[in-house]
Design a protein around this nucleic acid. Structure first.
Length: 643
RNA sequence: GCCGGCGUAGCUCAGUGGUAGAGCAAUGCACUCGUAAUGCAUAGGUCAAGGGUUCAAGUCCCUUCGCCGGCUCCA
């Protein structure tokens, strides 16, 4: 029998008889690894551990610690779930069951939707399947064979999937026990490898995400290699629930949505309004510092304007019905760009005038389907921190660098240290669905790439992610729990300058077409605040806290002193309250802690006599007594650093 | 919009066809208190809205509205 050489990630090479499986190799390396191994990467291809190796190559054994290994376990668990569902609901039709971030799902066509009690039963049945430790068996079949197998089982979704598989693609099936599924694999060796799983929720989902097709029942679940990891994950879900901005918004009295007014319309209460103002003030100051000019534009405009801009044809389903004013139809604005363009056109622009950077906190209204509304994150009226830059082609790259720099500065000011960038470009397969010549797209993409390189920022390429009018950079923020939030977006636009026939007079005395950059760094005040509330769990840093300090007099005889300290701190610019109620200090502290007031200043006889305050920091506890002026400098330093 | 769940006091929630409840919050009174809840009392409800079944509906049925979890889309 001939031998083959297998190289390991550490560079070591070992000889094995031809036909050895990845699983056998793992066993040879140690029982621990053999137990942890879920699949293998052979020369970059993911395969089952049972796959025999026929030639020399490179191997990497995948465990739950590898992203690929996690994917395999999640995917296999979805098969186990599907098997359980098949046992409990005979006649169920299978759709698809992929691994997703943090878990997996499987879509089923069942006459009756699943109930939460069903999930428990399914989990129990999964437990039996796992205990039976069925091996996952792979087989490859012809297209005809696959079609026959699934057609006779009535699996119409699988049949549709097989029909759509590209010709020449091998068709593989996986079996475990009495369960058979169409699947590319790979899978874990046997169902017994599924250890710590939980089914989380059930929801409707359209077959292939298409609302014209049947509504299926989707069950979401998650699985981990270690019990502690599953528990940690479930804890994180609880923590996310605790931080939910809708809950904190009510508890901290920041904002509300009112049924009487209509869904998706936000009411900013005084405290939330204050935080928003602080953010906006900071935003305006920073923009002015960077050469932006702040503008204002109306909320409605003639329908004709939206026809010229193209919104009436390609954005109509998100716009509200026209309002008739003196026999002329007007539309509520869903975007600010046409207005800034009209302002641009109000004068002849010289190449010397460019770049123009016009920013606006512009409130727009968009129709969103009722089922998608969500707290502050998805609403029908919102204020974008919008800006449009009108630039010469030769200025494009530098301006993009400037925008990225501003975006970075703003994100970091709000405590977002981690973010991911995506360069959204055309779909190379289908260039016809985009406006503008190849030349101009290439110029814009080059400018975007150049800007990213100048900033030294890593990014992923999103092919086909561009809007039809130009490429873009989209930034995803990572919050304190590691969750992603839509952050700044920077779009290059060739379309609108064209449609509105924008021009500037060049050095040559001839008109030239400017390029537009649309950009937002916060997104919208609503969505940004929603994210920020969750990021900080409602405990805003001192510079953003609606109430920065609360004075807690111990008895009525300390009220006079408390008010005098309040006056001093207010004069210094701090937002300070006094809690004069005849309650015990413990009660007042509890209340201030729950309201997430950053500093509690306890004042009694000692403090009054020494001109001090006893400082308690939110979530930290008692910091001891301090002179009033000392506290003030401490607070000022903290505000200055935005921490 | 679609599928499913939910809607009882400001909030969190009990209430299994027979007189609408609790805790917290609010208000009043007493207490004058030293780092996460002082005690007592009072008030607070067209049980989301509308219709139906029934001797009787918070409870069963229908419709509408809203919210929640998803699908799709996006700031």
């Amino acid at each position: 029998m001939s031998t083959i050489k297998i190289r390991f990630p550490d560079g070591q090479e070992k000889e094995y008889p031809e036909g050895v499986t990845a699983g056998e190799i793992a066993e040879g390396l140690g029982a621990g690894l053999a137990r942890a191994a879920l699949a293998a990467l052979i020369d970059g291809e993911m395969v089952d551990l049972s796959r025999p190796l026929s030639q020399t190559g490179e191997i990497r054994l995948l465990t739950f610690d590898d992203p690929e290994g996690r994917e395999v376990l999640r995917h296999s668990t979805s098969h186990v779930m599907a098997q359980a569902v098949q046992h409990l609901f005979p006649g169920v039709k299978l759709a698809i069951g992929p691994a997703i971030e943090d878990g997996f799902y499987y879509d089923f066509d069942v006459p009756q939707p699943f109930t939460p009690e069903d999930l428990t039963r399914i989990e129990e049945e999964m437990g039996r399947i796992i205990a039976a430790d069925y091996p996952f068996l792979r087989e490859e079949v012809s297209r005809e064979e696959a079609l026959r197998l699934f057609a006779e089982r009535g699996e119409k979704y699988k049949v549709e999937l097989i029909v759509d598989l590209p010709a020449g693609e091998p068709i593989s099936l996986y079996r475990q026990g009495d369960f058979l599924d169409l699947c590319a694999g790979p899978h874990i060796p046997s169902t017994g490898k599924v250890k710590h799983f939980k089914l989380l929720s059930v929801a409707g989902a359209y077959w292939r995400g298409d609302e014209k097709r049947p509504m299926l029942q989707r069950i979401y679940g998650t699985v981990f290699a270690k019990k502690s990891d599953l528990e940690e994950y479930l804890r994180r879900l609880e923590e996310a629930k605790r931080r939910d901005h809708r809950r904190l918004g009510r508890e901290l009295d920041l904002f509300s949505l009112q049924e009487e007014a209509g869904p998706g319309l936000v009411f900013w209460h005084p405290k939330g309004g204050l935080v928003r103002q602080l953010i906006e003030d900071f935003w305006r100051a920073e923009h002015r510092r960077r050469g932006y000019e702040i503008v204002f534009s109306p909320h409605i405009a003639k329908l004709d304007l939206w026809k010229i801009s193209g919104h009436w044809s390609w954005y109509k389903e998100n716009m509200y019905s026209p309002i008739n004013i003196d026999e002329v139809e007007y539309l509520l604005k869903p975007m600010n760009c046409p207005f800034h363009i009209l302002m641009y056109k109000s004068a002849t622009r010289s190449y010397r005038d460019l770049p123009l950077r016009w920013g606006e906190l512009g409130t727009v209204y968009r129709y969103e389907r009722s089922g998608v509304l969500h707290g502050l994150l998805r609403v029908r009226g919102f204020t974008q921190d919008d800006a449009h830059l009108f630039v010469r082609p030769d200025q494009l790259k530098d301006e993009l660098v400037g925008v990225i720099d501003l975006a970075q500065f703003m994100m970091e000011s709000f405590g977002y240290q981690n973010y991911e960038l995506m360069l959204s470009v055309r779909d190379p397969e289908n260039k016809t669905k985009y406006i503008g010549s190849d030349e101009v797209w290439e110029m814009a993409e080059k400018a975007l790439v150049g800007a990213l390189q100048t900033k030294g920022l890593p990014y992923v390429l999103g092919e086909g992610e561009a809007k039809f009018y130009g490429p873009a950079i989209d930034i995803t923020l990572k919050d304190a729990l590691g969750r992603g939030w839509q952050g700044p977006t920077i779009q290059v636009d060739f379309n609108l300058p064209e449609r509105f026939d924008l021009a500037y007079i060049g050095e040559d005395g001839q008109p030239h077409r400017p390029v537009m950059i649309h950009r937002t760094v916060l997104g919208s005040m609503e969505r940004f605040m929603g994210g920020l509330i969750e990021h900080y769990a409602g405990a805003f840093p001192l510079w953003l806290a609606p109430v920065q300090a609360r004075l807690l007099p111990i008895t009525e005889r300390h009220h006079e002193y408390a008010y005098s300290v309040q006056k001093r701190l207010q004069e210094a610019g701090l937002r300070v309250e006094v809690d004069p109620r005849s309650e015990k200090v413990g009660y007042k502290i509890r209340q201030a802690e729950m309201e997430k007031v950053p500093y509690m200043l306890v004042v009694g006889d000692k403090e009054r006599d020494l001109g001090q305050v006893a400082v308690r920091q939110r979530q930290q506890g008692d910091l001891g007594p301090m002179g009033v002026e000392d506290f003030l400098s401490k607070a000022r330093a903290e505000i200055g650093e935005k921490r």
